[in-house]
Amino acid sequence: MSIATLISLFGYKAWANSELFALLATLPAEHAEEFHTCVRTLNHVYVVDSLFRAHLSGEPRPFDDTNTKTTPSLGQLREEVAATDAWYQRYTSSLTSEEASGVLDFTFTDGDRGRMSREEILLHIVTHGGYHRGNVGQVLKSISVVPPRDLYTRFLHQSEPARRAV
């Protein structure tokens, strides 16, 4: 996979997260249980993103599990996710092809050992986030709320309108 594609995918991830958080901020109070499920799910994504960020940067693991015991507020989580998305965008923008293929050894939160290339880690972060945004979308559909259209093609055509001119 090219570095340009990774950069684009992390732009897409940040865009999709922003759209989803904006919608969740408008959810009526009568859907508190579903709202909580959505925030817990997105917090899990944030924690996993943070764990792999630590692996990529050689920093200590910031969490000992794949979710936190307490649930952050939507506003707090939104800020943390935006900062983490921005970090991944900067990281991919500065990555070389040689660095992307470099393999890292790490330990998962359950104690199992792992080995992945930086490129594989980055692809995991993108696909893992998309999977769980889809989970949140299903929760929203269950309460008759239309989730954002979380499509890479939509992102590409909105971020590069000239693509529609062909």
Rank of each mutant, 00 (worst) to 15 (best):
S73I: 12
A165Q: 02
L24C: 00
Q138E: 11
S50W: 06
Y46F: 11
Y131V: 03
H128P: 08
E33M: 08
T71Y: 05
F155W: 15
S57F: 07
D150H: 07
N67W: 10
L27W: 03
R118P: 02
L104G: 12
T5H: 13
A162R: 07
E30G: 06
T37P: 00
E19T: 05
P161T: 00
L95V: 06
Q158P: 09
N135M: 08
R113Q: 11
F155P: 14
V47G: 05
R154I: 10
L6K: 03
V136C: 07
C38R: 00
V139W: 01
F155S: 15
H55A: 12
L122A: 02
G130Q: 09
L140S: 03
L104R: 15
L151A: 12
G114K: 03
L77R: 09
Y152F: 15
G129H: 02
S94V: 06
A14E: 13
H31W: 01
D110K: 04
E79D: 15
L23N: 03
E30R: 09
G102A: 15
H132C: 03
L9T: 04
W87S: 11
L24R: 00
L156G: 11
A165H: 01
A16V: 02
H31Y: 02
H36D: 11
E79G: 13
R115H: 10
S117T: 14
T84F: 08
F21P: 01
Y46M: 10
N43L: 07
V145R: 08
A32S: 06
P147F: 04
H31G: 00
P72A: 06
R115A: 15
T109A: 13
R154A: 09
R115S: 15
E19P: 01
S159W: 13
V145T: 08
A16F: 04
L56C: 14
V139Q: 01
L9H: 05
R154L: 13
L123P: 00
D64S: 05
R154V: 10
T109P: 07
V45K: 06
L6V: 06
S93Y: 04
F63N: 00
E119C: 02
W87Q: 11
G75L: 09
P148V: 04
H36K: 11
N43E: 07
A22D: 05
T84K: 10
L6N: 02
G102F: 14
R90C: 11
S97C: 13
D49E: 15
K69Q: 05
L20E: 05
E34C: 04
P28K: 02
L20S: 07
N67H: 14
S142P: 10
Y12T: 10
L6G: 04
V81W: 08
S101W: 08
S18H: 06
V45Q: 09
P28S: 07
D64Y: 01
G130M: 10
F10D: 07
G129C: 08
E79K: 15
V139A: 01
D49F: 13
D65R: 10
V166A: 13
V48C: 06
S73D: 14
P60N: 01
R61V: 00
R149L: 11
S50C: 12
G58A: 07
E119Q: 12
